[in-house]
Design a protein around this nucleic acid. Structure first.
Length: 109
DNA sequence: CCCGTGACGACAT
DNA sequence: TATGTCGCCACGG
């Protein structure tokens, strides 16, 4: 549970503002493991046991496609994003480019 | 300790 | 532009 890697991913994910979305690669890059975008998603899979819960629904792939909706189950992820003001059509975030929240930039470390 | 898997991404064709 | 393939690293068995 003390896995710093997962914890780090959760920490960044929780920093995602409401109505915004980010990509696995962006988080991975922020963590310094740019090539490990998969690990971010992998960590997200385990985010269900993380406290406080991680808004994994705000994390999408580089295309803004809701790849994780398959894991959420049905259109739950899409509904969650819409509930936060994010326009989603065909499992794809609209104006993703504008809603994109890059930790490396927003956190401007 | 070795192998397979995976919510991705970039590059090559 | 679309499709295919490789790489990447952590975790489970």
């Amino acid at each position: 549970m003390d896995d710093n890697f997962f914890e780090r991913v959760y920490e960044v994910a929780r920093l995602i503002p409401v109505g915004r979305v980010t990509s696995y690669g962006a988080i991975a890059a922020f963590l310094g493991t740019k090539g490990s975008s998969r690990m971010v998603g992998y960590a997200m899979q385990a985010c269900g046991k993380a406290l406080p819960p991680v808004p994994a629904h705000r994390v999408v792939n580089r295309q803004g496609l809701l790849t994780a909706k398959f894991h959420f189950g049905g259109n739950l992820m899409e509904e969650l994003l819409k509930s936060e003001g994010v326009e989603v059509v065909d499992d794809q975030v609209q104006d993703f480019k504008s809603l994109f929240w890059d930790p490396s930039v927003e956190l401007a470390l």
